[in-house]
Design a protein around this nucleic acid. Structure first.
Lengths: 230, 230
DNA sequence: CATTTTTTGTGTGAAGTTTACACAAAAATA
DNA sequence: TATTTTTGTGTAAACTTCACACAAAAAATG
């Protein structure tokens, strides 16, 4: 009630933002978690989050938090749901506006001032407190929904990558396997990639061609959508 | 802070829910709006909405409101975004958890205890106050996104309907036109409909076959998705 | 140095899907 | 009875998807 002349005396819940930060290590999808430094649930792992300040929007709050934990700015984040069950937080009535973020793990440097953070693969998560497991599950569901119809990867892969890396990313998110030849054909056919005519440098086996995303076509496909399906 | 022993003294915004209620009149998509009964913006049209009570979840709040305005229970509603810009409401810091609902206009009876409500076609909306035009636009964008990959119509059409009615609905939501023959072929091919082997009763021109949704296949396609594209 | 192992690049044919398009029949109106 | 509007239906061409196999590149092994 900082402004205006209208007064409303509704009880007010607390409002927080939580952020599911996804990264890709070349094989598996991983999630960044932080260890709580205080009660309740001291020393339990949770999604990074915090209370909304009165002068910032939810997105600003989520971005701020992301920067604290990863040092990253300009990250891709997406609001996907607001959790509001009355009993979801033992501290009282707290609703949480949840975002997911896609980041390049290579570029993440842990903020100095921050509590313990860790990356966990989706199939090796620690126990999460509050309703954070539900939040994480929904984030993954929304990401899977998105990947079926819009390109994903720009924010998770390094600038140059091999076709195999992109395919592994898709397989890691969806938990399925694709035919290598058909995957490559489809992706090249929709024009998502630019062939760099370079090969990967330090390679264990045969070297592979490098690609980067074609920004124009990436944007177009994000608008217009395409069906990924094999 | 009703429970637990932890106390947090963060300032708290007010939290409201708003609902974009879509209906279909056979030709156009329409939205239900209500006229404000008090200041600020007395007598302006707004989306139906209200403040969140401490003992209810956002979805319960939205459903309650929907029932007040339309008399409907069991409606399909979907949370699509939470609006949180600090200056969005002249009454102070209010964040709004927004839902859209799809209803059969035929079944709506205006609640008796309620302020003035009205249906407006999307291309004939009155001026909306607060950021309600933004909310409505985003609801429509999300609905369009959804219709491309999941069946829509079960909640908007009467139980029995003609192919033409379904096509008109799709055209109304997307603002495009489809080829009648190809639309029908595609819809029948994915198995969304059951042919009732009946014809429409009171008809101005040639009578058309009636269909209903095949619940099983509707559910399956909602899960699995299909690509609508002509 | 030859052999083995792993991974990459590439192509084809069959099956299925999408698209564009036209005509005849049903019902009401004039 | 003729006219108008709307419905039901089919086909061919273009394109997309899918299943599948072999040869070549590089490193590791002995």
């Amino acid at each position: 009630m900082q402004k205006g002349t209208y007064t409303y005396d509704y009880p007010r819940p607390m409002v927080a933002t939580d952020c599911v930060i996804f990264g890709f290590d070349g094989t598996k999808m991983q999630v960044l978690l932080v260890k709580r430094g205080e009660e309740p649930y001291k020393d339990s792992w949770v999604l990074p989050g915090g209370f909304l300040r009165m002068e910032e929007s939810a997105e600003e709050s989520a971005r701020m938090m992301l920067r604290e934990k990863t040092g990253l700015r300009e990250t891709y984040i997406e609001q996907f749901h607001t959790f509001s069950a009355p009993e979801r937080d033992v501290r009282g009535r707290v609703i949480s506006i949840a975002y997911y973020a896609l980041v390049r793990k290579q570029e993440v440097r842990q903020g100095a001032n921050v509590s313990e953070v860790g990356w966990f693969p989706l199939d090796g998560l620690p126990e999460l407190v509050f309703d954070h497991k539900d939040i994480l599950d929904m984030a993954l569901a929304k990401l899977r929904e998105r990947i079926m119809f819009q390109p994903v990867g720009f924010d998770l892969l390094p600038e140059k990558f091999t076709m195999r890396a992109l395919q592994s990313l898709y397989e890691a998110i969806l938990g399925v396997e694709f035919d290598r030849r058909n995957f490559s054909k489809k992706i090249l056919h929709v024009g998502l990639l630019t062939d760099l005519n370079e090969t990967s440098r330090p390679t264990p086996k045969r070297m592979a061609k490098l690609y980067k995303f074609n920004a124009e076509s990436y944007g177009r496909l994000k608008e217009k959508g395409f069906r990924l399906e094999f």
